[in-house]
Write a protein that binds this DNA or RNA. Structure first.
Lengths: 237, 237
DNA sequence: TGCGCCGACCTGTCAGATAGGTCAAGGCTA
DNA sequence: TAGCCTTGACCTATCTGACAGGTCGGCGCA
């Protein structure tokens, strides 16, 4: 019997070094931007080779907990949703998650970010959100620009909610949106329908500017419902 | 001038191999459990050393996109929230995120999972959720058991929502809950208050069993409000 | 004082080597 | 013949040593 304890993942050397690094961050109260000791010093301290320490750094770097770069010391990284975005993307590709399920989660989260943004947005944020919505209107001919503006719009609303975890989650939907934008756009065959979608953003922006949380939430709900209905009508989801 | 393009991260060899691996998964339509080629074969194909391929595998393994283990080939991994849990934990430790902000996100998400669970739960899931809530009642003396039961309860509700992304997100709150359970429990100084919290779970379970989405949502809201109020009263958040 | 050069230090990548785990094919035993 | 066990090919985990190239602070020169 090779292993009496079932399913007990071995505590590898790399895992030990990962724990040492995270402990170092916690014990010293490091914040984003703070520099970490080098790979070699962690390797020396843990009594392992540099290759092991490298893989530990690589793991933390993949999760965007630290920021490594050639020549410099690694730094503690600010929160970043791209790693979660990769995971969601992966789940879609491996048939563990459907677009419709993602829209349900997004709707749930973004109804709240819209309401919070109406309460908490600064004047500058209200301007930013309105500007993005207005830019969508002027550049809706090409799909690429509108897509990036749409992603930026939802991210800006989430940032204005003043809750970094909401901002993190919303930004993590970016990758999967980019992967599936084309089919969503094709689901709205006429210019009028596309303009309806863009006008939805402007209504949201206006409600947030007015500080009307209820209206912002309702406008965001209408926006999502319109999108999902278009996808359903096109038989895509 | 070392780099004319600002902030353009170099496309390293490791990144190239990561892309090759994800492309392989997508191009072949691999699903969780499917085996991947070995590190060496990816290294050979990309014309890089095995160390580079190893770090690419390590990156994907850190994100829980693949599952590597000594002796076996790597496999495509099922969705798992532990990586996101690590990230949230890190954000709390580096003062990028407060407990209260996490509770706001959890409340937003779990009101929805409770409502969906009421619609979609199977009879077996209704039993599982009730069982966990009842077990909390009988074992509330020690903090450890109640904590794990609480985490299991919220995860079970999320699974019953039939949306794997909700389940993923809710399970990713486990680590930070374990880190901060003690202070939350201490915020409820009397047995009566602790019993109130546990009874909240039973009310939620009953509403989900009855298929009453509105009641389940309201019960979950009451549960979160009670918890946050206790933390606020204790001056913890 | 200010600018530029330089060296110490760091990461990125490579090659080769050993230990130990996994898994399935094929032989052996009942 | 069915089930168990050995065995070997293959794979990952880790180590060692080496070199190229990037970063950054400090020293010296103007």
């Amino acid at each position: 019997m090779p292993n009496t304890v079932e399913n007990e993942e071995p505590y590898t050397l790399v895992d030990q070094v990962i724990d040492k690094v995270t402990d170092h961050i916690r014990h010293n109260g490091l914040e984003p931007g703070a520099a970490l000791p080098s790979e070699s010093s962690f390797a020396l301290e843990a009594g392992v080779s540099r290759a092991v320490a490298r893989e530990a750094f690589r793991s933390l770097s993949a999760l965007r907990l630290i920021d490594v770069g050639n020549g410099r010391r690694a730094r503690v990284a600010p929160a970043d949703g791209s790693a979660i975005g990769r995971m969601i993307d992966h789940c879609v590709y491996t048939n563990q998650l459907s677009i419709q399920q993602i829209f349900d989660v997004r709707r749930t989260i973004e109804l709240r970010t819209a309401a919070l943004a109406a309460f908490r947005r600064t004047p500058a944020e209200a301007d930013e959100i309105s500007d993005i919505a207005n830019n969508m209107r002027t550049s809706y001919a090409g799909t690429g620009d509108v897509m990036e503006l749409d992603i930026a719009f939802h991210a800006a609303v989430a940032r204005a909610s003043r809750n970094p975890l909401f901002a993190l989650l919303v930004s993590s939907f970016g990758p999967v949106t980019r992967q599936n934008w084309a089919i969503g756009w094709a689901a709205r065959p006429t210019d009028a329908e596309r303009m309806d979608s863009i006008d939805g953003h402007i209504i949201i922006a206006e409600a947030i500017r007015q500080g009307d949380a209820k209206a912002a939430e309702r406008a965001m709900a209408d926006h999502f419902d319109l999108t999902v209905r278009a996808l359903l009508n096109a038989g895509i989801i």
